[in-house]
Design a protein around this nucleic acid. Structure first.
Lengths: 231, 231
DNA sequence: AAATCAATGAAAACGGCTTGTCAAAAAGCA
DNA sequence: TGCTTTTTGACAAGCCGTTTTCATTGATTT
């Protein structure tokens, strides 16, 4: 499994600036989705998985602040940068209130922007690394995501990467809802019909692996997601 | 025992500063490889072995932070110094300071730099002396990487350099995952198709050497790496 | 309650990629 | 030069993820 490029959602209605920035960031090995207004930005966000969002404040259809709220509804943790010509103090304050990680006023130095992006992504990476060594007890089972190992008694099942990631997410939400959309975006990268079907296949596989402890169940919550029920 | 000169990788796009620094450090009995951009720096790093890296932050082709990440991939422990003009935003610097052993702002006093280099190298030398003499017990086997010797009962197998390095990495991660990519970058210099094939050949060789103790196994974790299972 | 559409469950087929293995070629080294 | 070490090439075997198909269940409308 290779290190994949980090994906950036860039919402900017100024086509010139948007394209220039897109090209610049692509040269620096990021994958950019550029949308030209807030509504399109939200659609892109709901469809794909991003590592960071760069939002222009003033855009047609939906402004950057509103878009930020919508995004925060779906993912409370994703880093947000606002790009804005406004130096109004109130705007900046509102930006940070919405949980912005940075508020960048135009014109800005693209090199500095790049370094800020890197800094944020690196911080997030390190946080992920901490949760990398977690293991789970599920009834009679013991689950080690790092080794992709699901044991019980003297049985050891090696999980495939996708099985492993899905079970890990379920275990992190043990006895709680794991929303379909969340899992699809995190593991499959986007919430589409076929990815959804694929996920169902994996749910079936996990159920088979876990069937030796009748106290453990993966319950479907229709139209919403799954819940791993376990002591 | 003879002291070999410590080798320093210096990446600096300002030719003047680069040459001055190179000469100064050479006068102080270090061996310097000077490269003028990030990509060349990485190439040099993969080609030779260094004791410390001095990286300019702003360079053509690949900036110092990115280069640092690449270097850390291959060798997580090598000391890194960043050299940078002062104009950078403090917070960015702060973010990256974590990975760096020092962050030096230009203009700097070369004498101070020299002292810092000495201090770091001395610390590392001591650590290396310790980790250099490690031996491993693997089931019935005893493995001495320094002598490249793998013994069991009255059998002694002398390992080739590559066999030795690979088994050493596996042993350092005993019962844990050794990621493919990590081993490839560290031992082969880069993660390419043919290097991967080569590594598989070596895994097969090691398995053959280790087959006399059935408690020892080198297990593949598909797409991920290998795990040396041993008591 | 019947009809209908959408969401889910389960099995199997397929294509692509990773790994295991053997052997020969190439590169290093004494 | 001979020897060991390492890389390359070819092929088989295995693993994985997606897609397809068909069956089932849940929600909604009538």
């Amino acid at each position: 499994m290779e290190d994949k490029k980090s994906k950036i959602l860039l919402c900017e209605d100024d086509t010139n600036l948007g394209m220039v920035l897109k090209n610049y960031l692509e040269l620096n090995d990021y994958e950019i989705t550029l949308e030209r207004d807030g509504r399109l930005g939200l659609a892109a966000f709901q469809r794909e998985k991003f590592d960071i969002c760069l939002l222009d404040v003033m855009m047609p259809n939906m402004d950057g602040f509103t878009l930020a709220e919508e995004i925060r509804d779906v993912d409370p943790d994703i880093p947000l940068f606002f790009l804005s010509a406004k130096t109004m103090k109130e705007d900046i304050i509102q930006g940070y209130k919405l949980g912005a990680d940075d508020y960048i006023t135009k014109p800005f130095d693209s090199e500095v922007l790049l370094l800020k992006i890197k800094a944020i992504l690196k911080r997030n990476e390190e946080e992920n690394r901490i949760s990398d060594n977690i293991e789970f007890d599920l009834g009679r089972y013991h689950f080690n995501p790092k080794l992709r190992e699901l044991k019980h008694d003297d049985h050891t099942q090696t999980l495939s990467p996708k099985e492993n990631e899905l079970l890990k997410m379920l275990a992190e939400h043990k006895n709680d809802l794991l929303p379909r959309e969340r899992a699809l975006k995190k593991i499959w990268g986007s919430d589409t019909y076929f990815n959804g079907r694929s996920m169902d296949v994996y749910i079936a596989k996990l159920r088979k692996y876990l069937k030796d402890d009748t106290n453990i169940e993966i319950v479907n919550i229709h139209g919403n997601g799954f819940r791993l029920v376990a002591p």
